[in-house]
Amino acid sequence: MANTPQSKKRARQAERRNDINKARRSRIRTFIRKVEEAIASGDSDAAKAALQAAQPEMARGVTKGVMHKNTVSRKISRLSARVKALAN
């Protein structure tokens, strides 16, 4: 358990940050799921729109330190390839 005032404050901050990060991660997953569902349904236009909405959200996750840059880059690349293949 935290003993010093500083460590108590850091514990409070970490708890608050954890909740914020959890919400952001969940939001990103939701955007990714929408792209996946659009791809599964075979709707090219909906998949493109969902991907356009998901990309900035995923990039924001990187800047906020919730996800790693390479992870997001890989996910965007793979989703983009699948959406592009759907259009053909």
Rank of each mutant, 00 (worst) to 15 (best):
M1L: 12
M1V: 04
A2R: 11
T4R: 00
P5G: 01
P5F: 01
Q6A: 01
Q6V: 00
S7T: 00
K8E: 03
K9M: 00
R10D: 02
A11C: 00
A11L: 03
A11E: 07
R12S: 05
Q13M: 05
Q13G: 00
A14M: 01
E15R: 11
E15W: 11
E15Y: 05
R16E: 14
D19A: 08
D19V: 10
D19C: 04
N21F: 06
K22Y: 09
K22L: 08
A23M: 05
R24K: 11
R27N: 07
R27T: 03
R29K: 12
R29L: 12
T30E: 12
I32F: 06
R33A: 12
K34S: 13
V35D: 07
V35P: 06
V35Y: 04
E36A: 03
E36I: 09
A38P: 03
I39E: 09
A40F: 06
S41L: 10
D43I: 02
D43H: 08
S44I: 03
S44F: 02
D45R: 15
D45E: 15
K48G: 12
A49C: 10
A50E: 07
L51M: 12
L51C: 14
Q55A: 10
Q55V: 14
Q55S: 09
Q55L: 10
P56Y: 03
P56T: 04
M58Y: 02
A59N: 12
A59Q: 15
R60Y: 02
G61M: 01
G61Q: 00
G61W: 00
V62K: 04
V62W: 10
V62D: 06
G65R: 04
G65E: 08
V66E: 01
V66M: 08
N70F: 03
N70H: 06
T71N: 12
V72N: 06
V72T: 06
R74W: 13
R74P: 04
K75M: 11
I76A: 13
I76W: 06
I76F: 10
S77F: 14
R78A: 15
L79W: 04
L79H: 07
S80E: 14
A81C: 08
A81T: 10
V83H: 06
V83I: 11
V83M: 07
K84F: 12
K84P: 06
K84L: 15
A85W: 05
L86A: 13
L86D: 14
L86I: 14
N88M: 01
N88F: 08
